[in-house]
Design a protein around this nucleic acid. Structure first.
Lengths: 143, 143
DNA sequence: AACGGTTCCCCACCGTTCCCCACAATTCAC
DNA sequence: GTGAATTGTGGGGAACGGTGGGGAACCGTT
């Protein structure tokens, strides 16, 4: 069993909008999965426990904080709970597919506590940006 | 048993994308190996324990830090866990081979806590740069 | 109650990957 | 110098994982 999500996987979306979760991670979604919008115009897939703790964190923020309110709208309004089918796939609702601009292909990447789903073109652009800034980022992070 | 990785080894990549780990280092990868993108457009190979500690460090960084987000995408998305086969080889996934521009040949070098895999041409260029700057670098480092 | 549409579940195919065996070349020992 | 062991390389077969599609169950509507 994996402790952190990592890796990059090129998967397809079929005509029913189904996306396969990488086989090595399926065990982490036995208790359910939640799909949400995420930063960079991609989607995030959370195992149920991680989703709950993220939710608890958000709920603690004061109702009067405008930033917290916007973040709630961003995250909660798009949240979609889904159990993977017998083949380890989950169906992405159309409004989330539109947000992430997903057509027939997708790149699934592991990112610590969640998976991310990117349209392949956007992922290449993100990677290019990352490579351009990596030296400076490392310096900032002190690694 | 070596404590630090060092040395330079010219190996080939076969048609299945398999790379042989130098025999003297194979004992360090009994618990598993992780291949990632690395600086200079090469790949890094980490023994599982070293990777875990690097991973813990990354996971601790705040979700909101853009530099940390980019670094996660660079490192975690590129990370590929693989156990060496019975011959001490591991398969490099195609997206990592593309990143490092690897075709049929590779140079494996030891670098303290990890191995690096370079396309031979890039490695020669890196060596040339190193030799050109070595005197000044030593001065800066106070060695 | 009947119908159309959607969603869910299951089965089957196919490509890839993994694992094992075999060869060749180099190194090491005697 | 000769033999033996180790190392790097290649290939074949079996298992696994991703994909597509068909049929049953479930919804809302007429």
């Amino acid at each position: 069993m994996e402790s952190y999500f990592s890796g990059e996987f090129a998967h397809s979306l079929d005509e029913k909008g189904r996306l396969a979760i990488p086989a090595k991670f399926r065990g982490r979604f036995k208790e359910g999965a939640v799909v949400t919008r995420w930063l960079g115009e991609c989607l995030a897939i959370w195992p149920a426990p991680e989703w709950t703790s993220l939710n608890d964190d958000i709920a603690k923020r004061p109702r009067t904080d405008p930033a917290a309110t916007r973040f709630r709208h961003f995250l909660l309004a798009g949240a979609h709970e889904a159990d993977p089918d017998g083949q380890g796939r989950l169906t992405l609702p159309s409004h989330l597919r539109e947000y992430a601009n997903l057509q027939n292909a997708a790149v699934v990447i592991g990112n610590s506590d969640h998976l991310e789903v990117w349209e392949p073109g956007r992922w290449r652009a993100e990677l290019a940006k990352v490579q351009a800034d990596i030296a400076g980022d490392l310096k900032d992070l002190g690694i």
